[in-house]
Protein backbone atom coordinates (compact mmCIF):
# COMPACT_ATOMS: atom_id res chain seq x y z
CA UNK A 1 0.00 0.00 0.00
CA UNK A 2 1.52 3.30 -1.05
CA UNK A 3 1.91 5.86 1.69
CA UNK A 4 -0.04 9.11 1.82
CA UNK A 5 3.01 11.02 0.73
CA UNK A 6 3.54 8.80 -2.31
CA UNK A 7 -0.03 9.28 -3.47
CA UNK A 8 0.20 13.02 -3.04
CA UNK A 9 3.33 13.12 -5.13
CA UNK A 10 1.69 11.16 -7.91
CA UNK A 11 -1.32 13.45 -7.94
CA UNK A 12 0.80 16.53 -8.33
CA UNK A 13 2.85 14.91 -11.09
CA UNK A 14 -0.25 13.91 -13.04
CA UNK A 15 -1.60 17.42 -12.53
CA UNK A 16 1.44 19.03 -14.07
CA UNK A 17 1.24 16.64 -17.02
CA UNK A 18 -2.37 17.62 -17.48
CA UNK A 19 -1.41 21.28 -17.51
CA UNK A 20 1.04 20.65 -20.29
CA UNK A 21 -1.39 18.65 -22.42
CA UNK A 22 -4.04 21.30 -21.90
CA UNK A 23 -1.67 24.03 -23.02
CA UNK A 24 -0.65 22.00 -26.07
CA UNK A 25 -4.27 21.53 -26.95
CA UNK A 26 -4.89 25.26 -26.86
CA UNK A 27 -1.84 25.96 -28.99
CA UNK A 28 -2.91 23.35 -31.52
CA UNK A 29 -6.41 24.78 -31.64
CA UNK A 30 -5.03 28.22 -32.47
CA UNK A 31 -2.66 26.82 -35.07
CA UNK A 32 -5.40 24.66 -36.50
CA UNK A 33 -7.59 27.66 -37.13
CA UNK A 34 -4.84 29.38 -39.07
CA UNK A 35 -3.88 26.26 -41.00
CA UNK A 36 -7.48 25.58 -41.83
CA UNK A 37 -7.96 29.07 -43.20
CA UNK A 38 -4.88 28.68 -45.35
CA UNK A 39 -6.06 25.32 -46.65
CA UNK A 40 -9.50 26.65 -47.48
CA UNK A 41 -8.26 29.80 -49.18
CA UNK A 42 -5.92 27.76 -51.36
CA UNK A 43 -8.81 25.79 -52.78
CA UNK A 44 -10.15 28.26 -55.38
CA UNK A 45 -6.76 28.41 -57.09
CA UNK A 46 -6.44 24.65 -57.35
CA UNK A 47 -10.01 24.30 -58.56
CA UNK A 48 -9.64 26.99 -61.20
CA UNK A 49 -6.45 25.46 -62.44
CA UNK A 50 -8.11 22.07 -62.66
CA UNK A 51 -10.97 23.61 -64.64
CA UNK A 52 -8.68 25.20 -67.14
CA UNK A 53 -6.71 22.01 -67.46
CA UNK A 54 -9.85 19.98 -68.09
CA UNK A 55 -10.89 22.51 -70.68
CA UNK A 56 -7.53 22.26 -72.35
CA UNK A 57 -7.12 18.53 -72.31
CA UNK A 58 -10.54 18.03 -73.83
CA UNK A 59 -9.27 19.60 -77.00
CA UNK A 60 -5.84 18.11 -76.85
CA UNK A 61 -4.59 14.72 -77.94
CA UNK A 62 -3.36 12.60 -75.07
CA UNK A 63 0.28 12.83 -76.06
CA UNK A 64 0.39 16.58 -76.46
CA UNK A 65 2.79 16.96 -73.58
CA UNK A 66 5.27 14.61 -71.86
CA UNK A 67 3.52 15.06 -68.53
CA UNK A 68 0.30 13.64 -69.96
CA UNK A 69 1.79 10.53 -71.52
CA UNK A 70 1.24 7.21 -69.81
CA UNK A 71 4.53 5.36 -69.77
CA UNK A 72 5.28 1.77 -68.89
CA UNK A 73 5.51 0.77 -65.29
CA UNK A 74 9.09 1.36 -64.32
CA UNK A 75 10.10 3.16 -61.17
CA UNK A 76 7.54 5.03 -59.17
CA UNK A 77 7.95 7.82 -56.67
CA UNK A 78 5.67 8.30 -53.74
CA UNK A 79 5.46 11.66 -52.04
CA UNK A 80 4.50 11.10 -48.43
CA UNK A 81 3.46 13.94 -46.15
CA UNK A 82 3.91 13.45 -42.42
CA UNK A 83 4.49 15.50 -39.29
CA UNK A 84 7.74 16.91 -37.95
CA UNK A 85 6.73 16.48 -34.35
CA UNK A 86 5.05 13.73 -32.44
CA UNK A 87 2.25 13.76 -29.89
CA UNK A 88 -0.41 13.88 -32.53
CA UNK A 89 -2.06 10.51 -32.15
CA UNK A 90 -2.08 8.21 -35.15
CA UNK A 91 -1.41 11.01 -37.60
CA UNK A 92 1.98 9.91 -38.87
CA UNK A 93 1.46 6.21 -38.22
CA UNK A 94 -1.72 6.03 -40.29
CA UNK A 95 -0.33 7.66 -43.36
CA UNK A 96 3.02 5.88 -43.09
CA UNK A 97 1.35 2.50 -42.78
CA UNK A 98 -0.70 3.30 -45.85
CA UNK A 99 2.54 4.04 -47.69
CA UNK A 100 4.08 0.80 -46.51
CA UNK A 101 1.00 -1.10 -47.64
CA UNK A 102 1.06 0.60 -51.00
CA UNK A 103 4.68 -0.38 -51.49
CA UNK A 104 4.02 -4.01 -50.55
CA UNK A 105 0.88 -4.22 -52.70
CA UNK A 106 2.51 -2.77 -55.77
CA UNK A 107 5.86 -4.47 -55.58
CA UNK A 108 5.04 -6.55 -58.62
CA UNK A 109 3.61 -3.63 -60.58
CA UNK A 110 6.74 -1.50 -60.50
CA UNK A 111 10.44 -2.08 -60.70
CA UNK A 112 10.82 -0.08 -57.54
CA UNK A 113 8.94 2.45 -55.51
CA UNK A 114 10.90 5.27 -53.96
CA UNK A 115 9.76 7.48 -51.16
CA UNK A 116 10.04 11.23 -50.81
CA UNK A 117 9.01 12.18 -47.32
CA UNK A 118 8.17 15.51 -45.79
CA UNK A 119 8.36 15.52 -42.03
CA UNK A 120 10.83 13.98 -39.63
CA UNK A 121 8.40 11.59 -37.96
CA UNK A 122 7.53 9.76 -41.14
CA UNK A 123 11.19 9.14 -41.80
CA UNK A 124 11.70 7.74 -38.31
CA UNK A 125 8.66 5.54 -38.63
CA UNK A 126 9.57 4.05 -41.98
CA UNK A 127 13.33 3.86 -41.67
CA UNK A 128 13.26 0.44 -40.05
CA UNK A 129 10.49 -0.90 -42.28
CA UNK A 130 11.21 0.25 -45.82
CA UNK A 131 14.34 2.30 -45.22
CA UNK A 132 15.93 1.38 -48.51
CA UNK A 133 13.09 3.09 -50.42
CA UNK A 134 13.54 6.49 -48.84
CA UNK A 135 15.39 8.71 -51.29
CA UNK A 136 14.74 12.15 -49.91
CA UNK A 137 13.43 13.77 -46.76
CA UNK A 138 12.30 17.35 -46.31
CA UNK A 139 12.11 18.43 -42.70
CA UNK A 140 10.54 21.43 -41.03
CA UNK A 141 8.42 22.51 -43.93
CA UNK A 142 5.19 22.75 -42.01
CA UNK A 143 6.28 25.51 -39.67
CA UNK A 144 6.83 28.11 -42.37
CA UNK A 145 4.77 26.73 -45.16
CA UNK A 146 4.85 28.81 -48.30
CA UNK A 147 4.27 28.37 -51.96
CA UNK A 148 7.95 28.65 -52.78
CA UNK A 149 8.83 25.46 -50.92
CA UNK A 150 6.01 23.59 -52.59
CA UNK A 151 6.99 24.81 -56.02
CA UNK A 152 10.59 23.79 -55.37
CA UNK A 153 9.54 20.25 -54.54
CA UNK A 154 7.15 20.28 -57.48
CA UNK A 155 9.87 21.29 -59.92
CA UNK A 156 12.16 18.63 -58.57
CA UNK A 157 9.51 16.01 -59.16
CA UNK A 158 8.61 17.26 -62.62
CA UNK A 159 12.22 17.22 -63.76
CA UNK A 160 12.84 13.74 -62.41
CA UNK A 161 9.74 12.64 -64.30
CA UNK A 162 10.83 14.34 -67.48
CA UNK A 163 14.26 12.74 -67.47
CA UNK A 164 12.45 9.41 -66.96
CA UNK A 165 13.89 8.63 -63.55
CA UNK A 166 10.31 7.90 -62.58
CA UNK A 167 7.39 6.74 -64.64
CA UNK A 168 4.69 7.53 -62.13
CA UNK A 169 4.42 9.80 -59.13
CA UNK A 170 1.90 9.41 -56.33
CA UNK A 171 0.98 11.66 -53.47
CA UNK A 172 -0.11 10.33 -50.11
CA UNK A 173 -1.27 12.63 -47.34
CA UNK A 174 -3.82 13.20 -44.62
CA UNK A 175 -6.65 15.19 -46.16
CA UNK A 176 -8.33 17.54 -43.77
CA UNK A 177 -11.95 16.68 -43.24
CA UNK A 178 -12.70 18.23 -39.89
CA UNK A 179 -10.81 19.03 -36.72
CA UNK A 180 -11.21 15.49 -35.48
CA UNK A 181 -11.16 13.54 -38.69
CA UNK A 182 -8.38 13.11 -41.23
CA UNK A 183 -8.61 10.91 -44.28
CA UNK A 184 -5.55 9.24 -45.72
CA UNK A 185 -5.70 10.15 -49.39
CA UNK A 186 -3.79 8.78 -52.35
CA UNK A 187 -3.54 10.84 -55.51
CA UNK A 188 -1.73 10.32 -58.75
CA UNK A 189 0.48 13.31 -59.43
CA UNK A 190 2.10 12.19 -62.68
CA UNK A 191 1.29 11.43 -65.40
CA UNK A 192 -1.47 13.97 -65.10
CA UNK A 193 -4.76 12.30 -65.73
CA UNK A 194 -7.11 14.34 -67.83
CA UNK A 195 -10.37 14.37 -65.94
CA UNK A 196 -12.86 11.73 -66.92
CA UNK A 197 -14.96 13.09 -69.71
CA UNK A 198 -17.81 14.87 -68.02
CA UNK A 199 -21.28 14.82 -69.46
CA UNK A 200 -21.70 18.55 -69.09
CA UNK A 201 -23.19 20.54 -71.87
CA UNK A 202 -20.17 20.82 -74.09
CA UNK A 203 -19.21 24.43 -74.54
CA UNK A 204 -17.94 24.35 -78.05
CA UNK A 205 -16.35 27.76 -77.88
CA UNK A 206 -12.89 27.46 -79.26
CA UNK A 207 -10.32 29.32 -77.29
CA UNK A 208 -7.73 31.60 -78.71
CA UNK A 209 -4.37 30.64 -77.31
CA UNK A 210 -1.51 33.00 -76.77
CA UNK A 211 1.32 32.24 -77.55
CA UNK A 212 -0.09 28.84 -78.60
CA UNK A 213 -1.71 25.77 -77.13
CA UNK A 214 1.41 23.78 -76.63
CA UNK A 215 3.16 26.65 -74.90
CA UNK A 216 0.24 27.30 -72.59
CA UNK A 217 -0.09 23.64 -71.79
CA UNK A 218 3.58 23.25 -71.04
CA UNK A 219 3.39 26.09 -68.54
CA UNK A 220 0.21 24.98 -66.86
CA UNK A 221 0.99 21.30 -66.41
CA UNK A 222 4.07 21.70 -64.18
CA UNK A 223 2.10 24.31 -62.28
CA UNK A 224 -0.55 21.72 -61.61
CA UNK A 225 1.97 19.48 -59.87
CA UNK A 226 3.23 22.36 -57.74
CA UNK A 227 -0.26 23.35 -56.77
CA UNK A 228 -1.18 19.81 -55.82
CA UNK A 229 1.90 19.57 -53.63
CA UNK A 230 1.15 22.91 -52.03
CA UNK A 231 -2.40 21.92 -51.39
CA UNK A 232 -1.34 18.56 -49.98
CA UNK A 233 1.07 20.27 -47.61
CA UNK A 234 -1.57 22.71 -46.44
CA UNK A 235 -4.12 19.99 -45.87
CA UNK A 236 -1.59 17.79 -44.14
CA UNK A 237 -0.57 20.69 -41.92
CA UNK A 238 -4.15 21.42 -40.92
CA UNK A 239 -4.75 17.73 -40.31
CA UNK A 240 -1.69 17.52 -38.11
CA UNK A 241 -2.88 20.29 -35.84
CA UNK A 242 -6.33 18.75 -35.75
CA UNK A 243 -4.90 15.37 -34.82
CA UNK A 244 -2.68 16.88 -32.15
CA UNK A 245 -5.57 18.79 -30.70
CA UNK A 246 -7.68 15.64 -30.49
CA UNK A 247 -4.81 13.64 -28.99
CA UNK A 248 -4.10 16.29 -26.37
CA UNK A 249 -7.76 16.59 -25.55
CA UNK A 250 -8.06 12.92 -24.77
CA UNK A 251 -4.77 13.01 -22.86
CA UNK A 252 -6.11 15.83 -20.69
CA UNK A 253 -9.27 13.87 -20.08
CA UNK A 254 -7.35 10.75 -19.14
CA UNK A 255 -5.27 12.79 -16.73
CA UNK A 256 -8.41 14.17 -15.10
CA UNK A 257 -9.73 10.65 -14.69
CA UNK A 258 -6.49 9.52 -13.14
CA UNK A 259 -6.48 12.44 -10.71
CA UNK A 260 -9.99 11.50 -9.61
CA UNK A 261 -8.94 7.93 -8.95
CA UNK A 262 -5.83 8.94 -7.07
CA UNK A 263 -7.73 11.46 -4.96
CA UNK A 264 -10.17 8.75 -3.97
CA UNK A 265 -7.32 6.47 -3.02
CA UNK A 266 -5.69 9.28 -1.07
CA UNK A 267 -8.85 10.02 0.92
CA UNK A 268 -9.36 6.36 1.69
CA UNK A 269 -5.83 6.00 2.97
CA UNK A 270 -6.19 9.16 5.02
CA UNK A 271 -9.37 7.91 6.62
CA UNK A 272 -7.87 4.54 7.36
CA UNK A 273 -5.00 6.25 9.12
CA UNK A 274 -7.36 8.36 11.23
CA UNK A 275 -9.42 5.33 12.19
CA UNK A 276 -6.29 3.48 13.14
CA UNK A 277 -5.08 6.33 15.31
CA UNK A 278 -8.46 6.64 17.04
CA UNK A 279 -8.46 2.96 17.81
CA UNK A 280 -5.02 3.21 19.30
CA UNK A 281 -6.04 6.11 21.53
CA UNK A 282 -9.22 4.41 22.68
CA UNK A 283 -7.56 1.11 23.43
CA UNK A 284 -4.78 2.99 25.24
CA UNK A 285 -7.25 4.85 27.48
CA UNK A 286 -9.18 1.64 28.12
CA UNK A 287 -6.08 -0.07 29.41
CA UNK A 288 -5.26 2.69 31.97
CA UNK A 289 -8.71 2.48 33.56
Amino acid sequence: MPSLKDIKKRISSVKSTQQITKAMKMVSAAKLRRAQEAAVSARPYAEKLQQVLTNLSRREEADAHPLLVQRGKGRALMVLMTADRGLCGGFTANVSKAAERFIRDNEQGFEAIDLLITGRKGKEFLRSRVGESIVKVHENIGAHLNYKTASMIGQEIVSSYEDETYDAVYLLYNAFESAISQVVTLEQLLPIKAEAEQEVAEDTTDYLYEPDRREVLSQILPKMVEVQIFRGLLESNASEHGARMAAMDSASRNAAEMIDKLTLQYNRARQAAITKELMEIISGSESVK
Binding site: Y209, E210, P211
Partner: peptide, 13 residues
Protein backbone atom coordinates in the same frame (compact mmCIF):
# COMPACT_ATOMS: atom_id res chain seq x y z
CA UNK B 1 -3.57 43.12 -74.14
CA UNK B 2 -6.78 44.95 -73.42
CA UNK B 3 -10.03 43.16 -72.73
CA UNK B 4 -13.48 44.63 -73.10
CA UNK B 5 -16.87 42.98 -72.58
CA UNK B 6 -17.70 40.64 -75.43
CA UNK B 7 -14.11 39.52 -75.90
CA UNK B 8 -13.64 36.24 -77.71
CA UNK B 9 -12.63 33.27 -75.49
CA UNK B 10 -8.92 33.42 -74.89
CA UNK B 11 -6.28 31.73 -72.84
CA UNK B 12 -2.93 33.39 -72.43
CA UNK B 13 0.04 33.30 -70.15
Amino acid sequence: LGILPGHTPLLTT
